[in-house]
Simulated scan of single mutants.
Amino acid sequence: MCLFCSSFAVVGTPEELWRLFSFQAFAQEELNYLDTTPGGERTNDEMLEDLRDRYRIAIPYIDSFTQRQFPGGIINEARKMLQRGLHPFWVHQMKLSRHGRLPLNGSDTTIVGESYAQ
Rank of each mutant, 00 (worst) to 15 (best):
T109P: 01
K80L: 14
H92W: 04
D45A: 01
F65A: 09
Q83D: 12
E114L: 06
L102P: 00
A117M: 04
P14S: 01
Q83C: 05
A27H: 02
H99E: 14
S22T: 07
R42L: 10
P71Q: 03
N32F: 05
Q118C: 07
E15T: 11
G106K: 13
R68V: 05
A9D: 08
S64H: 10
L20S: 07
G106N: 08
T109L: 11
S115D: 04
Q28I: 01
D63A: 02
P14T: 00
T66F: 02
C5M: 03
L96S: 04
V112K: 07
R68K: 13
G113M: 06
K80W: 03
L96D: 13
T13G: 14
G100T: 12
R42C: 01
A117I: 04
L51M: 14
S6Y: 10
Y33F: 14
C2D: 11
A27E: 11
L51T: 13
E49N: 08
T13L: 09
M1K: 09
D108Q: 09
L31C: 06
L102Q: 05
F89C: 05
Y55G: 02
L34P: 02
G85E: 10
Q28K: 14
T43A: 14
H87W: 05
G85R: 12
P38L: 06
N105P: 06
Y33R: 15
P60V: 04
E30M: 08
F4C: 03
D50Q: 12
R101N: 14
F4V: 04
K95D: 00
A25M: 10
S22Y: 09
E46V: 02
G113D: 12
N76W: 00
F8M: 15
M94Y: 04
F4E: 10
W90P: 00
L20M: 04
L48V: 05
Y33G: 07
F21P: 00
E114F: 04
F8P: 04
P88F: 06
N32E: 12
V11T: 15
L31Y: 09
A27Y: 05
F70E: 03
S97A: 08
E46R: 10
L31P: 06
F4A: 11
R98M: 01
E114R: 11
Q93V: 08
T36K: 12
H99M: 13
T110S: 09
Q67L: 10
S115A: 07
G113S: 15
T110Q: 15
L20C: 01
L104F: 11
T43W: 06
L3I: 02
M81R: 04
A117P: 02
T13H: 05
F26C: 04
D35T: 09
E30G: 08
Y33T: 08
Y61Q: 14
F70P: 08
P60T: 08
G72S: 15
L3Y: 05
I57V: 11
I57C: 02
G85I: 06
N105H: 15
